[in-house]
Design a protein around this nucleic acid. Structure first.
Lengths: 339, 339
DNA sequence: GTGAAAGCGCTAACAT
DNA sequence: ATGTTAGCGCTTTCAC
């Protein structure tokens, strides 16, 4: 990659300033000159250096994307959304995968700052327990616009696009109630994660508003894993006063339930109704119709990226923006009440 | 982001060269001086500019990753592997999603070249039909090391890590034969994709080597979609001389088969045996035990990244390297022959 | 319309 | 052990 703007200038018999002008369509350039320059560019197979340009312009047109688990399609879809909008606006994406490790997340933040990215889109590690003071300090003092996606950073206030977990859970449980269910269990996520708490809150709210007493025996504390959900579901199935429906706080946990169901020949929804939070595409493809609350993943990515672009274009604005998306309830039949 | 190395130099009462030295741990610096510099860095919250450094060093420590479908966990896992190794070696990742669109792929390539990345890891769009001459020309004349992952670029010879699709398919079909199956159908992928052709080849090879005649009626041409597989499977189930086993060329298509099975109350493997290519995690989690050939995705990502680093460190070597990974057969019981 | 030259923030000889 | 200086490849006034 030796060929530079000066080589082109030489080859075309003009100055580098002129080459720059044709490259950027800026200023006046005689058509004839432009042709010569373009010809030289073709012949020498010249590609301008974004690095040099960035340094000179103090603008990288790059944003950083930080996700906890790249191999989870949930984040894949968010990135897809981001990428689409970024493409349209000619932004590059630097990707950092953190494996749910807050140390790596911190490292990613620093690294991105070095890269002089213009903004950061981050899905913070879901557990909000252990923010070190260093982490908090770093993210607060980044000096770069940050937009959170579907996850809050405790003690802090950032721009972000979030899912209304309370509403999602409420809608799901309300649907079950409307169907005729009165004994409704919940399997929660890890309670140190905000979404898990909010989903539980939505569950309780729905029961309360419909005058159904909240029974502690029907609240099962899971941890987002399918293994745990499997165990819990087996227990539920053995209860004397067994619920007729389960609201499951995450897609992975739905899988654990299904396993337990099939081992015990439980038919959905005849023997047990179920609604899950977040989609499991595969289940629907194979014709196993599980109702779920659909977090708009691709959409979130798009909106977050747009929000960031907005912020970048209005750098004077200092107020923090927040969008709460309503997840959509997708009914497939698994919520039915069969007497 | 106003603070530069000169600000630090000024604040610490030294020259920028000295600051650079402590930043890079290069050359000699008196401890005392180092302290002063570090103090200034802390106080001014200075973060060096990777952009400026890259320009100066002619080295970006960044590699480009190009995938066709970021929201597919298959690619997510590849990226995870890449990211792990990249982290260890302090490489940044610029990600480009192409939506299986060869135009976007071409654009990504150009864009990455502008960014002066050191190398490219690419999973080419699976269809090898329409490489424009521009595409071929561009990728051949990139002047940047390219490592292909699980996909070839027609008419060209690149470094790459691939899956041995022939072997994978062979192993699967051989297993079915060993189980006692003699009537084995295949649902292929899109035949303009090399993996699809190779998997079919593996299927035929296994039959031939075991003296089972290849019957055209048992070869069904799919297109990687679950919808098509669903249609095909329904047809298979209606055949008078029905196969006892199906080898399915992709994970998505397995889902279509399962849907058809369950609609027709076909039990696996009692009424029909099945082995698929590539994992569908979810199926195993819910206890639906489908045997499959496991392409080592994370591993491929890791190996590809390592290979790239290798190439970067031996820039004189001009021979192209290729690694063919054997996929692993994971048996869950769906391959059994039940009389 | 086009060129000269300064500067973006950093590194790497070369001096001292 | 530290400072001076000349780039790295490009953009952008300011002249002409």
């Amino acid at each position: 990659m030796a060929v530079t703007i000066d080589d082109i200038a030489k080859a075309a018999g003009v100055s580098s300033a002129t080459v720059s002008r044709v490259l950027n369509n800026s200023g006046y350039v005689k058509d004839e000159t432009r042709e010569k320059v373009l010809k030289a560019i073709k012949e020498l197979n010249y590609t301008p250096s974004a690095i040099a340009r960035s340094l000179s312009k103090k603008k990288t047109n790059t944003i950083g994307v930080v996700v906890p688990e790249i191999n989870n399609p949930f984040f894949g879809e968010i990135i897809k959304g981001i990428s689409e909008v970024a493409d349209e606006h000619n932004f590059n994406l630097i990707l950092c995968n953190t494996d749910e490790d807050i140390k790596k997340e911190l490292r990613a933040l620093k690294l991105l700052k070095e890269q002089r990215i213009e903004g950061i889109l981050i899905t913070p590690t879901s557990t909000d327990s252990d923010y070190s003071s260093e982490y908090l300090w770093t993210i607060e003092n980044l000096g770069i616009p940050v937009v959170l996606i579907d996850g809050h950073v405790k003690y802090s206030n950032f721009n972000g696009v979030f899912v209304d977990h309370i509403k999602g859970a409420y809608d799901a449980v309300k649907t079950l109630i409307d169907e005729g269910h009165e004994k409704i269990a919940i399997i929660t996520g890890r309670m140190n994660s905000r979404p898990a708490r909010e989903r539980l809150a939505g569950y309780k709210k729905a029961l309360k508003l419909h005058n159904i007493p909240i029974k502690e025996e029907y609240i099962f504390y899971g941890d987002y894993t399918h293994e745990k959900a499997y165990e819990i579901t087996k227990k539920i199935l053995e209860m004397k006063d067994r619920p007729t429906a389960i609201f499951v706080s995450s897609n992975m946990m739905v899988l654990g339930c299904i396993k337990a169901f099939s081992e015990n020949n439980i038919e959905i929804p005849k023997d047990m109704a179920i609604i899950g939070f977040d989609k499991v595409e595969v289940l629907n493809i194979i014709g196993m119709n599980i109702s779920f609350i659909n977090g708009p993943t691709i959409e979130m990515g798009k909106i977050a990226m747009k929000m960031l672009i907005d912020i970048l274009n209005n750098s004077q604005a200092t107020d923090t923006k927040t969008i709460n998306l309503s997840p959509q309830l997708v009914l497939k039949g698994s919520e039915k009440y069969v007497r």
